[in-house]
Computed example of a mutant assay.
Amino acid sequence: MTLCRPPFPVVVQPGWKNSGAAHWQSHWQVALGARRVHNRDWYAPRLGDWLAGLDAALDAAGEPALVIAHSLGCVTLAHYARRHPHRVAAAVLVAPADVERAGAPEQIAGFGPIPREPLPFPSLLIASDDDPFCRAERAQSLAGHWGSELVWLAGAGHINADSGHGPWQEGLELLDDWLAGRLAA
């Protein structure tokens, strides 16, 4: 399958601890010619720093961009959208991290509370029915609050390299189909 190139710049927003070389976000960054958000500290994240990192990546993109976020990056984008509603053209939110869940690591608690306002741009949320960092009911609730279209993956864990999602060609096809539908509308 030949994938279409998005009609706007692409920014990759990784989650906590970044996305390594085997992670699908790193593969997609190359495949889509995307910019990657650079944060000061991937292991001791601070919301203000992460918002600044996303802002810098969007500045470098030069125009509203498609943001492809994973895990804590999804929550970062939801916070960013409240402050800068016109900097993002669309978003794909994969396996959002529930920073408010019982037992959430202390390092990510500063990203709560999770914004519950609709995102001011089209968004697709891809969730797994067995994500250890965001229960299915919570992912469905976030999609509803954010006004995101929701796609479920069965047994996909946290949709990262550890759960077998390296290049994740099927995800790229989901992105392509969703963009084609959004652009046709």
Rank of each mutant, 00 (worst) to 15 (best):
F111Q: 05
I108K: 08
E100C: 04
F121Y: 14
P115H: 08
E100D: 15
I114A: 00
P105Y: 09
R116C: 08
G110L: 06
A95V: 12
A95L: 11
L119Q: 02
P113A: 11
P105Q: 12
P105L: 13
S123A: 15
G112L: 07
F111Y: 11
P118N: 03
L124A: 04
A91C: 02
G103Q: 10
R87G: 06
F121I: 00
V88M: 06
D98E: 06
Q107L: 15
A89N: 05
P120Y: 00
V99C: 09
E117L: 03
A91E: 10
A102I: 08
G112S: 11
P96K: 14
D98N: 15
A97W: 14
L125R: 00
L124D: 03
P105H: 13
P118T: 06
L125D: 11
R116K: 12
G103Y: 09
P105T: 08
L125N: 06
D98G: 06
R101M: 12
G103L: 11
E106T: 07
R101K: 09
P120T: 00
I108Y: 11
S123R: 00
A95G: 12
P113Y: 05
R87L: 13
V94W: 10
E106I: 08
P120L: 02
I114E: 02
F111C: 05
V94F: 03
A97Q: 15
E106D: 15
A109V: 13
V88Q: 03
L124M: 05
L125I: 03
L119F: 01
L93I: 03
R87M: 11
G103T: 08
V92E: 02
R87W: 10
P96I: 12
P105F: 09
R87Y: 05
R101L: 07
R87F: 10
E106L: 13
L119G: 01
P115V: 02
G112W: 01
G110H: 09
P115G: 04
F111V: 03
D98K: 05
A104Q: 04
I108V: 15
E100M: 13
V99F: 08
I114R: 06
I108G: 05
A90I: 10
A104M: 09
P96V: 11
P105C: 09
P122Y: 09
P122W: 10
E100W: 07
A95I: 12
P122V: 01
F121A: 05
P115D: 12
E100I: 04
G110A: 15
L93F: 07
G103W: 10
L124F: 06
V88C: 07
P118C: 02
V92H: 05
P118D: 13
A91H: 06
L93E: 10
V88G: 02
V99S: 09
L119A: 00
L124N: 05
E117G: 00
A91F: 13
A102V: 13
P120I: 01
L124P: 01
V92D: 02
D98C: 04
P113N: 11
E117S: 08
G103S: 09
A104D: 08
V94K: 09
P120S: 10
P113K: 03
E117M: 00
D98I: 08
R101W: 03
E117I: 00
P120Q: 02
P115R: 07
A104G: 12
V94G: 03
F121N: 04
F121S: 04
Q107A: 15
A95K: 11
R116Q: 15
V92P: 00
